[in-house]
Amino acid sequence: MLDGILAARPRGFSLAARYVAFALLASTLNLLVQMAVMGLYHGPWALLLAMAAGTAAGLAPKFLLDKYWIFYDRAPGRLRGLRQFILYGLLSVVTTLLFWAFEITFHWLGDGGPLRYVGAALGLGLGYWAKYHLDRHMVFGRA
């Protein structure tokens, strides 16, 4: 069933609309996981643990959506797919550092309050913008 969903070429939505929708979906998942972790754990490194868990939660779903519905990558081969996922993950580190810098800065500016989520949203938005361009050129090679 998943193959059928991923293989379907979306109709009626522009590339930009799909990418924004998927970025919002992954961002929402990320922030919900962060909130859950912060609600369950208040110890040392809670913020970094929450940020790492949120980032990890969105990685695989966003990769699959980007691969099949943004870049229409249908090239066969598990090894090729693994190579793409590894490169996608490595490039995610770069954009995640941007996202985390914004979130930590706003966390500090807001004394640990909800302003942190404004920084997270800004960082995620800028990170996804950069990620699209990196993925287009370096991971999937076309758009």
Score class of each variant (00 low, 15 high):
25 L>R: 02
116 R>M: 15
71 F>W: 14
140 F>D: 00
49 L>E: 07
85 F>T: 09
138 M>Q: 02
84 Q>D: 07
105 T>A: 12
103 E>I: 04
89 G>D: 09
122 L>W: 09
81 G>M: 04
87 L>K: 09
28 T>I: 06
84 Q>C: 03
80 R>Y: 05
70 I>Y: 08
44 P>W: 13
38 M>K: 13
73 D>F: 03
15 L>I: 03
121 A>C: 11
30 N>Q: 07
73 D>L: 06
128 Y>H: 11
31 L>K: 08
9 R>T: 15
132 Y>C: 10
129 W>D: 05
13 F>D: 05
5 I>C: 04
46 A>M: 12
87 L>M: 09
60 A>S: 00
43 G>S: 13
11 R>K: 15
90 L>T: 14
79 L>C: 04
65 L>E: 10
130 A>S: 08
142 R>I: 00
135 D>Y: 11
44 P>Y: 11
49 L>A: 12
38 M>I: 12
89 G>E: 08
43 G>P: 06
125 G>R: 01
79 L>M: 05
44 P>E: 10
136 R>P: 03
56 A>F: 09
82 L>I: 07
4 G>L: 06
12 G>H: 06
81 G>V: 01
38 M>P: 05
80 R>W: 01
76 P>D: 13
9 R>L: 12
118 V>K: 13
5 I>H: 01
106 F>H: 06
